[in-house]
Design a protein around this nucleic acid. Structure first.
Lengths: 218, 218, 218, 218
DNA sequence: GATGAATGAGGATTCATTCAT
DNA sequence: TATGAATGAATCCTCATTCAT
């Protein structure tokens, strides 16, 4: 009784269905709490099929991570306007990032929340993706500013982006657009909170020197 | 009969040992993967003792979250220099944050990585702590800059701090000091990356206008 | 691979085997003392199968109670000769009762001894069955005798039947037949012990009046 | 801090408190479900005290059974009017039984419901008590009627009494008195339901012969 | 290609029981 | 006399994984 085009599905399609179900389930429950029964049911197949196609829970989770990581990396890569200036590249990359995470919240949850907390070998998988993004951002910053020691800034910027993505996903009713988020972050990072300060009254700000000095030590 | 001072320990002390062991174990393995056997062994007691004092895995985890959240909140609260200007307050708060997370990496992991991914009711417990911090930071930013719409900046700054804390914990051999991290973040947030730019050649930067305009919409 | 017809049994059959094993085990050990391991082994399956089909110890016990209660009720119902006079109906119902309880002693033990002592919600399940039987008997007595206040008699008669069933099950070597038991009880209840008295010497017995008077008060 | 006359209690008194608590707890929860913790708390002592005085859960339960069985036997024995005729003795014994069970419902529950269902060695303990009562009743019936084969009647009568005791304990709002119950049972047993029949129209009842004949076979 | 039937292993939780004081 | 501290041994239940069809 082929219920609405479900029986006799070609392998690639079935596999995609399974990964979709797995990503959704892992996102909602976490790696340990998600059961293969639950995933199989969500995928509309029997459990042995999941094992036939994906071998084990570990491999299934790994496949989810790989697929979502590749998709996110591709989304950012494709969004970046090559050839433009560093600022423009950063802007467009952030836009791609925010729009992709908003469009694929389960994938983002699996990558950002779940995979990193289960321990090795999964965390390493995500660490690679994150390192790539951080390096990419660091390159852009260095290109724009000429400075050498930008690793800290890159980490800060990526963390800020992640936090904004989570904020946008969870709180406001009229969801913030990717452009809003990207603009907020560009302002924050590029012009700094100093830009919000009232006119500095013609004098160099004294206090900041305190920490600027420290920073040069790291 | 272990070496010294282990048998017949008074309740308060044993309870602390158990929480220490639980925090370490939950940090390393995650909530689900951590077994009560493992925790009991790490605490140097038998499993029934853990249940006698802490009732269940859920309550044990909750107790861990509460203890670590309270400790972190207290560390930041005590570090903030009340009466100082907003910048100085932010600086000292960040310093307290980075020093506490560096000193208690397992507690930080439980709060930041594990508790948020297990689902309700644990995530809510941490969400409260984070919201408090974000609000506190937002207040400081607003006080310093007079601007109204600073929620996004506050989220970005907190996310950046979290990212830097994780970065410092994981990567560099000569561990970055809390002061280094706080300085990096203050520079990043207050002066912005713009400060790293080469002298802008006397003209207002044209490109940024693109996103600054968008930002005012949100 | 056991002897014959054991592996790969269809669900309905396995479920029956499990209930059989559970009834026998609960009858022998009681609800609390019976372990799921024991039941699974008695059924010739592994424990997870019992949980797969019957969900929990509670539900398993409930299923046992329901099955045995339904079987007993059906046995009595089918044994009653409808259309006959009340005495004949009572006789045939008792016969059905004694024959069923003798043929299914474990079921009887689960209903009568175990389920009633475990507390709610199980006791309620059995109480319903017993109330039905008591009401049925009360109806027959009322129909035969025209009296109104027969609830006490019905309870007494049902208790007497239960006691005889237990007596027959436990003691005499040449097991008493259902007909023996039914006849004993019919004599006891219908003619009363008075019938066994020696000829009353032409006078109404004086002593009984004492309690007969009391009875009319209740 | 001796709270209201509880510390430094002499042994006999403490033991009685423990047995009271144990009987109440066993009655409510059953042997297996009752925990030593619960009993100790109900008795207002620490667990080691219970072990010091009563050695083990088994022995504690046995002690409960013995005490309640002895009390019930004594109550019936003392109630019987020695020297009176068999009917009067039976009446007074039943009265003692109903009044004692109504006054000590937990003891009755432990004896009748719990101890019999836990299996050996406890069931045997109660079986002895019950056999004594059944024998006593059988002796009275035989003395009154001169018949030999009265075991069945004695079992029926005792079962009827137990059922009435349970009925009185559970259902009617204006609790039936022991005298009501005893009267109901005496009428039921001695005069039989036949006494309730409408006047037999001067002929020997034909139907009863059917089962009376069968009875003579057993 | 697809599944119903089946299980070994492990985890949370409770309990009767005993020391050390 | 009396108890807080401590545990070995079950018990219920779940899950990843595999056959036989």
């Amino acid at each position: 009784m082929p219920a609405a085009g479900s029986r006799r599905v070609p392998r690639a399609e079935r596999e995609r269905q399974m990964l979709d179900a797995a990503v959704a389930t892992f996102a909602r429950r976490g790696y340990r709490a998600a059961s293969m029964d639950e995933i199989a049911e969500a995928a509309g197949v029997s459990k042995p099929m999941v094992y036939l196609y994906l071998n084990s829970k570990d491999e299934l989770f790994t496949a989810c991570i790989r697929r979502e990581a590749d998709a996110l990396a591709a989304a950012v890569r494709d969004a970046v306007e090559e050839g433009a200036g560093p600022e423009r590249q950063l802007w467009s990359g952030l836009l791609g990032f925010f729009e992709h995470t908003a469009a694929h919240p389960d994938g983002w949850t699996v990558l950002y929340s779940q995979a990193r907390t289960v321990g090795e070998p999964f965390a390493a998988e995500v660490a690679v993706l994150r390192a790539e993004i951080v390096d990419f951002v660091a390159g852009l910053i260095a290109a724009a500013c000429g400075s050498q020691d930008v690793a800290g800034y890159a980490h800060a910027l990526v963390g800020a982006a992640e936090s904004l993505a989570g904020w946008a996903a969870s709180s406001p009713s009229p969801a913030l657009s990717g452009e809003d988020l990207a603009a907020t972050l560009m302002n924050f990072a590029w012009s700094g909170l100093a830009a919000l300060l009232p006119p500095p009254a013609g004098s160099p700000p004294g206090a900041p020197a305190a920490w600027r000095g420290l920073s040069s030590r790291g």
